[in-house]
Nucleic acid binder design. Structure first.
Lengths: 142, 142
DNA sequence: GAAACATCGTTTGTATGCAAATGAATTTCT
DNA sequence: AGAAATTCATTTGCATACAAACGATGTTTC
């Protein structure tokens, strides 16, 4: 018989561990980030640069896993820093098309070492094999 | 030579994957949760019940991985629903000691199946071995 | 062509989360 | 005992996040 008081152990729950792991990563990220970008802002800017086609605001948000309301705030902050700029779509008058600016491009290049360092720091306790394992397992959760 | 355009792949970064994985878990959690508790509120309440000794607000927060500011809000919401109650500490006049109420206890019991179901749903695509692997790897990150 | 539906961007409200500052109380150091 | 440091709870400001509603615009259907 298992002890009913121990049948549910919080420290063994995926959700609890995922929250703490992401929290720790964010701390390491912000520690190293010299360019004043949050993880979400960095991801958004990076996705915009690597996009092969012009992206609307919502489309970009979807590529980063943000809903429209969250995207709005992130894009506003990137706009305020001149890291991206906006053009009205001629075909669809609801749409804004987003572009990364030179400033944004240079910032991405400048902070990439910080970002890579934060991933490295997060995974520091794992071997190379374990890192691959973890990434593969996380991808299967999504 | 690796393509410099592919040397940093967003979809292979721990931080990005952790964020999406936790996001997905939260969605599955809230879908199943019948008691109106968020993952953080549930964890906080559960930790309070399982605690072997009386806990101050900050001490409880630390056990759940929240800072004092976040804890304040979570505790307020649990108080507002009568899931916990507070007593002034006689020895340390800065301190509030927190206790779970009967209502809180019953709610925990009632929603435990929801919570277990959400963990199960999050891990659904993994085998039993892979689940263990993932949990162990996540613990090493923290 | 008109109605029904979907999408775009926005706004409001709520809930984590962190940083930084505060005042009050306690502990530690000297 | 008194000064210094720490801890407790709180507050403010900022940045994700989601839900739900909104008006404006597009698309589909009939």
């Amino acid at each position: 018989m298992t002890d009913p008081n121990e049948s549910y152990v919080l420290d063994e729950q995926v959700g609890f561990l995922l929250r703490l792991a992401y929290q720790r990563h964010m701390a390491l990220f912000m520690e190293r980030m010299t360019g004043g970008l949050t993880p979400t802002q960095f991801s958004t800017l990076y996705r915009l640069r690597e996009a092969s086609e012009p992206l609307s605001q919502n489309a970009l948000g979807r590529l980063v896993g943000m809903d429209a309301a969250t995207t709005k705030g992130v894009v506003s902050r990137l706009l305020a820093r001149d890291l991206i700029h906006v053009e009205k779509d001629g075909e669809d008058r609801r749409r804004y098309t987003l572009f990364i600016t030179d400033t944004g491009c240079h910032l991405l290049d400048a902070v990439l070492p910080d970002v890579i360092g934060s991933s490295e720091a997060t995974l520091a306790r794992l071997t190379s094999t374990e890192r691959d394992q973890l990434l593969q397992l996380l991808k299967r959760l999504i």
